[in-house]
Computed example of a mutant assay.
Amino acid sequence: MTPSARIQAAIELLDAIIASARDGGPAADTLIARYFKDRRYAGSRDRRAVRDHVYRAIRRAAERPDDGRMAMVGLARDLPEIAALFDGSAHAPAPIAPGEQGAAPGAVPGWLMPLLAAPVEQDALLGRAPVDLRVNALKGTPADFAALLPDADPIAGLAQGRRLPEGFPIEQNPAWKQGLVEVQDAGSQFIVQACGAQPGMTVVDMCAGAGGKTLALAAAMAGKGMLIAADTIRSRLARLGPRAERAGATFIETLLLDQSHETRALDSLKGQADIVLVDAPCSGTGTWRRNPEARWRLTPERLDRLVAEQARILDFAAPLLAPDGVLLYATCALTDREGRDQADAFLARHAGWVADPIDLPVGRRHGAGLLLTPGHDGSDGFYFARLKRGT
């Protein structure tokens, strides 16, 4: 592909990504993979260059552009070398017309900006995220990992945490193939640390998804006790089985829930759990470094639905706890509606419940819990709070 043809390919991909964001379709990575599967003529350099163009355009535009050309023209306004490739040659985009509108630059959609927690450093939300790892204590020690990847940096406050540069191909390394490490953002690891799971406990990961935090809980429990990974989406939960096998966490039980009727499957657990982790569905505003097109998917209406769903999940999760149990509420979101306000609303609805202070070397106290942000903590953005019945 010529350099100009790569720009045209990026425009075509951006058209698909914009349409998918508008209609709730597949993520950008999925669409990029499909695009090149049908275009075998594109070499590895072509794929890397096109992908880079696509993500630079996505990161630059907070508001969803009308189409892919608008997104790329916006990028070209900043970069003359890109603008020169709009040359109208074969397989290239037409020249940029005088006064042609490009996507406006920005980090946060205008409607969302006043809803972000006040300490959030907006420019840091779109930086490149490193590859954070958790050494799997069920398979080995940090020393075992260091023998395979000696250049990984430790993550302060996480004995099992290690960090590699953005884009490092960890899945090609023996440490990953042997189950010695899992890819897991530092913020996510701190959430598991805040749970305080110990061997022999009964722990429920209520919104387990593919089980990243479930596997970390399994390691903290040393494979002993009862650990239940619950979710309403079968396809996500199915991904946990192979991951648990590789990690040596075969004692995990999975529980498929019927959405809106979750209590039917959870009834036998009432009053039994030492820890319930509710890593609730959320806006994902804390993960924009990894998923920048998520800004184009979020709407005020969708945020309303998410906030209502978070409250509903908290309310049916709370009865599962033993009298001295801990409800750990977490979201990878940086809006106060999903974080501070959601935790405060739970405490207001549930008489006798209190916020249990979290003692971690990261984050900032924010309402009942802690706020982690990319700018302050070098992790994805998270809000989490420990909630329990008062004594």
Rank of each mutant, 00 (worst) to 15 (best):
252 I>H: 00
252 I>N: 03
252 I>M: 03
252 I>C: 01
252 I>E: 01
253 E>V: 02
254 T>D: 07
255 L>V: 11
255 L>Y: 06
256 L>C: 02
257 L>E: 05
257 L>C: 03
258 D>Y: 00
259 Q>D: 11
259 Q>W: 00
259 Q>R: 01
259 Q>P: 03
260 S>Y: 03
261 H>D: 06
261 H>W: 03
261 H>K: 05
262 E>A: 09
263 T>G: 05
264 R>Q: 13
264 R>W: 13
265 A>S: 13
265 A>F: 07
266 L>D: 01
267 D>C: 11
268 S>K: 15
269 L>D: 09
271 G>F: 11
272 Q>S: 11
272 Q>I: 03
272 Q>R: 15
272 Q>D: 04
272 Q>N: 04
273 A>P: 04
273 A>L: 05
274 D>F: 03
274 D>T: 10
274 D>A: 06
274 D>M: 04
275 I>S: 05
275 I>T: 13
275 I>H: 12
276 V>S: 14
277 L>Y: 10
278 V>L: 14
278 V>Q: 13
278 V>C: 15
279 D>W: 01
280 A>W: 09
280 A>S: 08
280 A>Y: 13
281 P>G: 11
281 P>N: 09
282 C>W: 14
282 C>M: 10
283 S>D: 02
283 S>F: 11
283 S>P: 04
283 S>H: 04
283 S>N: 07
284 G>T: 15
284 G>Y: 06
284 G>W: 11
285 T>P: 07
285 T>Q: 06
285 T>K: 07
286 G>Q: 07
286 G>K: 12
287 T>P: 03
288 W>G: 02
289 R>A: 06
289 R>N: 05
290 R>V: 14
290 R>L: 08
290 R>C: 08
292 P>M: 09
293 E>Y: 06
293 E>R: 01
293 E>I: 00
294 A>H: 14
295 R>F: 02
295 R>T: 04
295 R>M: 12
296 W>I: 12
296 W>E: 08
296 W>C: 04
297 R>E: 06
297 R>Q: 06
297 R>T: 03
298 L>W: 01
298 L>K: 01
298 L>E: 05
299 T>H: 13
300 P>W: 10
300 P>T: 07
301 E>W: 01
301 E>Y: 03
302 R>Y: 14
303 L>V: 11
303 L>Y: 15
303 L>D: 12
303 L>S: 15
303 L>G: 08
304 D>N: 14
304 D>W: 06
305 R>W: 05
305 R>H: 08
305 R>G: 08
306 L>Y: 13
306 L>V: 10
306 L>S: 08
306 L>K: 14
307 V>M: 04
307 V>Q: 04
308 A>F: 10
309 E>I: 10
309 E>V: 13
309 E>Q: 15
